[in-house]
Each structure stands twice: as C-alpha cells, then as structure tokens.
Design a protein around this nucleic acid. Structure first.
Length: 395
DNA sequence: ATGTAC
C-alpha cells in the first residue's frame, strides 16, 4: 500500500457518505456515472449522494444527482448555475406547427437595451437585471436547452391540474435555459484559483450564485415573453419554474443539485426529448432523496456517440419532423443529431422510477408541437461539406 | 453548457 496516510482518526467524522440510486433495474445507468457518484461520495465533508433515474456522466461530476455536504463545492453545481425549466400557459387561436415554427424569433440574439429598446419583452424585466448582467439576456443557449410550444395531452391528476389551471388541449411554452455567460464566469473565477476544491468563502460564492439563479429565472421569462409576442400571444406568469443546477443551504448543510430539481412539495416539469412527451409532476421527495427529483429523460449516449450513430440511423428530415408530428427548429445539423430522441432514455421509465420510489406524482403529460433549438439558417437542406462547422467537442 | 481557442 503506497497511499499517503492522513490522520483520519483525528478528524471529527470519517463515516463515508451514502450513495442511493433512485432507479429500478429496468433503468439503464451508465457505470461511469455511478463511478462519479462514488468519487463525489469520497469528497471531504460529503454526507449523502442521491442519484436520480436520469443519472448520466458529466464533466467531473455526475448529472442527475443531489449531493449533501458540510463543504461547498462549486464544481458540483457546474457552470450553468441557475439552469432550470419553466412552464408558461399560452393562448393561441390555432396551433399549426408549420406556421408557428417560422414565427419563432432569433433566440441567439440577446435583447439589446438600445437596439431593442421598444421590444415588448422588456415588460418582464422589473427593475435591475441581476448582477447588472445584460449580456446574453433572452438567449436560449445550446446543448439541451430549448423553448418548446407544447400541448397538454393526458391529465393524470385532475385535481392538481385544475389547481394549475390546466386542461387537456391547452398550450404551454416550456423553457429550458440557464444563466448563460454569467454562471460560467462565476465558476471559472473559482476554478482558476481553487480548481475542484471547496469554496473558501461560501458566503461570497453564494452571493454570486444567487444572482445567477435569479438571472436564469429572469432569462426564462424573457425567452417566454419574446416567443409569446412573436406568436401573437400575451406573456404569462410561469406556473412552474424549478432550477436544477444550484446549491442551497438546508438543515445546516450544502445541498448541491446538478441536473436534479428541488423536490420538496414543488411542481416540476420533467423534460422528455424533442420528439417525446414531457411530464409535469408534483414532487414530494424526502431526505433520502436529498429533497430532489429528476430533471429530464437523461442522456443515454454521449454527444459524440449520438452524432456518430445518429448519422447512420437518421436523416436530418426525420429529426426535424418528429414521430409525434412536431417540428424542431435547429439550424445546426450536429446539434440535431446530438439531441436526437434516441440519444435519451425513455422518459416514461424515468417517471415510473420517480413514482415507484414515491418521489413524485404525475400531473399532466405534454406533447411537443414546435421545439426551438437554434435559428433555422434557411430551411433548404443542402448536403454541403461535412464538418466544416467543427465536429469536435466532448461534453 | 460555456466562451474561446485552434
């Protein structure tokens, strides 16, 4: 044994952290993700790791986990501090996907206070923007982020759905986005000095973190307002808005959530894919689950695998027009493959696992009509030279 | 997931 021996017996608590995985044997969980959970459990001060059924490997830390610790680790939240999913009711006279898809605004372009001074979406910005950060406001971002027009499909808890004002056939905007450059900057400032180490001044980190959480929520409102106006509707207050990348101080410890939503008596939209249903659930997770629930279907394949296998399996056309008849607005071919429904686990299995472990009760399911990912750069799909937009990147 | 570097 060549390990250097720390005086562990002199430390106040050396009991190893517990790891609980809330997934049935039917749910495929990648072994790399479980290894990451064990690595997190071995961190100084870690108490309990609760892994959700959408668990998959992340960069350094697992995605789909809630991690309680006496020590605050910024890297366990990651760079997209404040990322979450919100649901906004929207009323439209007609909802023909083909017509509406072309009306989505360019959500790569930030709302500019001068150039877009007259944009009505500013109404949701009351007072100052958190951290004074205007850069990127109203942009959706990349990766798994999206803005989706969806239809309420099946009512699974009539009483709860009625309390939310939801009926079968109603339309909603589902917005999945976060704090864009702001959270990234906050994590980078920490990691440049301390790497994956603890926050030396938790209060200072938390002050910036809380701004990013507020910014992420504001960004989702701005996105929903931009899209609502563009589709000829009025913006609305969200009926659900839960962050799934954050740390909260709870029962005197730091509860880190990475791809896990707050599950203590709140309603959460558990996102499916760009071609399958999503589920709005009433969450009631207890301490064994670190008061958290899953945030989505969870990746089954890495982005690299999805791209490689997707090219052999799918055409761009079938990814843009999904099996449920919805349209995907996405000018980036590579992202379309990376985000293919087949790259994700079955959302019904994730929901079944939450129900089986008594973490949540389904309220309604939604079916996508139009999912916006990136601007549609001219819909004529020329074959074009392969990979000229860069085909690398690992996350 | 991100802005930036290659």
């Amino acid at each position: 044994m060549s390990e250097h021996h720390l005086p562990r017996e002199s430390l106040p608590s050396s009991a190893p952290a517990t790891v609980t995985v809330f997934a049935s044997p039917a749910s495929w969980i990648e072994s790399d993700a479980l290894t990451q959970c064990q690595q997190v459990a071995a961190l100084d001060g870690m108490i309990h790791v609760a892994a959700m059924p959408d668990l998959h490997p992340g960069k350094g830390a697992p995605i789909g986990a809630a991690m309680a610790s006496t020590v605050l680790y910024p890297f366990l939240v990651g760079s997209d501090i404040g990322c979450g999913i919100a649901v906004f009711p929207i009323k439209l006279k007609r909802a023909v996907p083909e017509r509406l898809a072309s009306r989505f605004p360019d959500l790569d372009r930030a709302l500019d206070p001068e150039r877009d001074a007259d944009d009505p979406a500013w109404v949701v910005v009351e007072g100052d923007v958190p951290a004074g950060h205007l850069e990127g406001l109203g942009t959706v971002g990349r990766g798994n982020h999206f803005v989706e027009l969806a239809r309420v499909d099946t009512i699974l808890d009539a009483g709860h759905a009625a309390r939310l004002g939801l009926n079968a056939g109603d339309l909603v905007l589902i917005v999945h986005s976060g704090s864009r450059g702001l959270g990234e900057r906050i994590l980078r400032a920490h990691t440049e000095v301390h790497g994956a180490g603890a926050a030396p001044d938790p209060a200072a980190y938390l002050a910036m973190h809380d701004e990013a959480v507020r910014w992420g929520s504001l960004n989702r409102r701005v996105l929903a307002a931009r899209v609502a106006y563009a589709l000829g509707a009025e913006p609305s207050e969200p009926i659900v808005d839960e962050c799934h990348n954050l740390v909260e101080v709870r029962d005197g410890v730091y509860l880190h959530r990475k791809g896990a939503a707050s599950g203590d008596g709140r309603d959460v939209l558990v996102a499916g894919t760009r071609g399958t249903a999503s589920y709005l659930v009433a969450a009631h997770a207890g301490p064994e689950a670190n008061h958290s629930v899953a945030h989505g279907a969870g990746r089954k394949m890495s982005r690299a695998d999805a791209l490689r296998r997707g090219r052999a399996k799918h055409t761009v056309e079938e990814l843009r027009r999904t099996p449920v008849g919805s349209l995907v607005v996405c000018g980036e071919r590579q992202l379309l493959f990376e985000e293919a429904p087949t790259a994700y686990k079955r959302i019904e299995q994730v929901i079944a696992d939450l129900v089986e472990h008594r973490l949540a009760t389904p309220v309604v399911s939604t079916i996508p009509l139009v999912t916006y990912k990136t601007p549609d750069l001219g819909s004529t799909s020329r074959p074009g030279p392969r990979g000229h937009r860069g085909a690398r990147g690992r996350s």
